[in-house]
Amino acid sequence: MGSSEGLTEWVRRAARGETSAYSELYRRSRPMVARLVAGFAPLDPDEVEDVIQETFVRAFRALPRLKEAGAFEAWLLSIARNRARTRLERKASTRRLEDDVADPEPETVPHIPEALQLERDIEVVRRLIAELPEGEEKRTVQLFYIEGELSAREIAEKLGVGKSAVTMRLERFRSRIKRELLRRVLAGRWE
């Protein structure tokens, strides 16, 4: 989704070097980044904080080169996901220290139109959640995305399942949404 006009203006001001704009971007964006990273249950609270910090350090360093200010939120969340995945894979020893999930290059991010259809998109997601068969996956998705209060770690405790299981359920559902969105992009939804 494209960033809101308010956020986009702060991105422009930060790119011009206004220090206070970085504070405002951090204030407005941190909850979204923190919520995204909270979906990676195997990361402990310290690791979550590290991922959040690394995300903003990388994003703020590269921000003056960001081609499309309106793409800031999607770009930032892409970085956060990459940082969390890298941390998770290193923790599981499936990725070497020198390897890294590459972040989207700020110079080449595409233009993302204003989120005119955001409400409709959100309704699509709600419908897909409602259509999930009753069970643990649906409950997990509802707790994390709809209610939006508990971290994946806390959901694992609440449901009495392993931390990785919760993250796998969330990622499985997310991949369905990603397929649906990709189809819409290919159908000219954002062209």
Binding site: A71, I112, E171, L181, V185
Partner: peptide, 24 residues
């Protein structure tokens, strides 16, 4: 799609949409 990024900023757009469903 679950294990690979992109294309473009699709991952960020998906997460933005999903997080938009809740109160965050």
């Amino acid at each position: 799609l679950a294990t690979h990024s992109g294309p473009d900023l699709l991952d960020g757009q998906v997460d933005s949409l999903l997080l938009g469903v809740g109160p965050t």
